[in-house]
Amino acid sequence: MDDEFEQIFKRWFDEHKRLLFRIVRIYASSLDEQDDLFQEILLHLWKSVPNFKGLAKETTWIYRVALNTALLWRRSRRRRRKRFRKSIINFEDIPASPADSSSAQENHKLFDQLYKAIRQLPVIDSCVVLMHLEGLGYEDMTKVLGISKNHVGVRLNRAKKALARDLKGLLDEI
């Protein structure tokens, strides 16, 4: 049974690690915090595997675990947890090379600013924007958040307007 759980966990991790890290990057800013939140999400994801009966879609399940963990994660407990944990992620800056095209550099800048702007949003709005950017529909978002489609729509519109305001010049008005 444990082998089966391990396989599921490894597959989830392989398929969704980029998503998990995008979530981590929104809710934790420093590398130290990102490592802590990443471990926290993986811990909850591993604990949730035996409860996964296939009634919910895998992506919905993973979003729920990751977002719930990120939103309830407590920075202040980081030091206490750090005593028992060792870092599992190696972060290494990739300096922009002069050979990079100007559009690639602009892209870097845009996403950097986008992350900053998403962090400024109210937390529920940031969840909605994140899921929207990831391509989730309203139906899936309601299942993750536990709110109505109408509410999701209102939140998303409001968040898009706020992002357009914050990213003036980079993003068209909504």
């Binding site: 604990k47 675990v65 719930n68 939103l71 309830l72 958040l145 536990g146």
Partner: peptide, 8 residues
């Protein structure tokens, strides 16, 4: 933790 955000 795999409940909806509202439930959690």
């Amino acid at each position: 933790i795999h409940d909806t955000l509202r439930g959690t």
